[in-house]
């Protein structure tokens, strides 16, 4: 096969995956009423993809905020604007870094585990066994994870953003000596709850949560039932989610400006 043919196949395969995932979305949504029966399973998944992701989200949020404050302080110092450090940290985190970095971490931590878990269930015939027990695996396995991902992502974005601002405060106020009152008052007067927090953290979080969990669940559900198939599906989850997050972020930002 020529290099050109390989590239064409890769492109066609990618387009086919996007189309297939798009077709899978109505199946998931149609199964939502049936999956309400499995409320406990949804809560269990919420715990797994949400609560169990807290440590990595909080840790990364803290360090992102700290490094952001450190970098901004030294840049703003050139213009004599160090008092704005808190504001710039908050705007960067709420509008972009919070939702985007959270989504990337979420794809790596929760998305891959969703894909691998469902993929292994496929490979070991557990999904077929459910079908044979007259239990709809889309409603029992896929949809609860999908719902849990959509709920968890905005919440994790909030936690990440809070920790990032806390990290910024630690570096800016405690270490670099910015006045505590200036840090908070500048931030609160320049950050708009609706435009920055709701649009950035909540709406972007919801969008990224939907896309990442859709990709994760779809990759797991359609993976070839082999160990190699599960490995590829897990990799594709991270790659496709990362590209989708950044592309959707650009589109959403353009619309929100």
């Amino acid at each position: 096969m020529t290099a050109q043919a390989k590239r064409r196949n890769l492109l066609l395969d990618g387009l086919a995956q996007i189309g297939d995932a798009g077709l899978f979305l109505p199946t998931l949504l149609a199964a939502v009423p049936r999956s309400l029966r499995y409320f406990r399973e949804t809560v269990r998944q919420l715990w797994f993809v949400g609560a169990m992701s807290l440590i990595i989200i909080m840790t990364c949020g803290l360090f992102v905020g700290m490094v952001l404050a450190l970098q901004l302080y030294h840049v703003l110092e050139i213009f004599g604007g160090t008092a704005s450090t808190g504001t710039v940290v908050a705007l960067s985190v709420y509008r972009e870094l919070g939702p985007v970095v959270t989504a990337l971490l979420f794809a790596g931590r929760a998305g891959t585990s969703i894909t691998a878990e469902i993929g292994l269930m496929r490979a070991t015939d557990q999904l077929s066994a459910m079908e044979m027990m007259a239990v709809d695996p889309v409603a029992y396995v896929a949809t609860p994870r999908f719902i849990a991902g959509i709920i968890a992502m905005p919440l994790l974005c909030c936690v990440f953003s809070a920790m990032a601002i806390f990290g910024g405060h630690l570096v800016g106020v405690t270490w670099l000596g910015i006045d505590n009152g200036t840090f908070w008052s500048n931030m609160t007067s320049n950050v708009d709850v609706w435009k920055d927090v709701i649009d950035g953290v909540i709406w972007k979080g919801l969008a990224f949560g939907t896309v990442v969990t859709l990709i994760s669940v779809h990759q797991g559900y359609t993976t070839p039932p082999t160990s190699e198939g599960v490995a590829y599906a897990t990799t594709r989850t991270v790659v496709a989610s990362s590209i989708a997050i950044l592309a959707i972020d650009f589109v959403l930002t353009a619309f929100m400006m």
């Binding site: 269930m121 070991t124 015939d125 557990q126 077929s128 066994a129 044979m132 027990m133």
Partner: peptide, 17 residues
């Protein structure tokens, strides 16, 4: 409904892990 009246033993047992 039909499958509720049919049992299926998978080759690898397919127990829910």
């Amino acid at each position: 409904k039909l499958r509720e009246r049919v049992g299926y033993l998978f080759q690898n047992s397919a127990l829910l892990t």
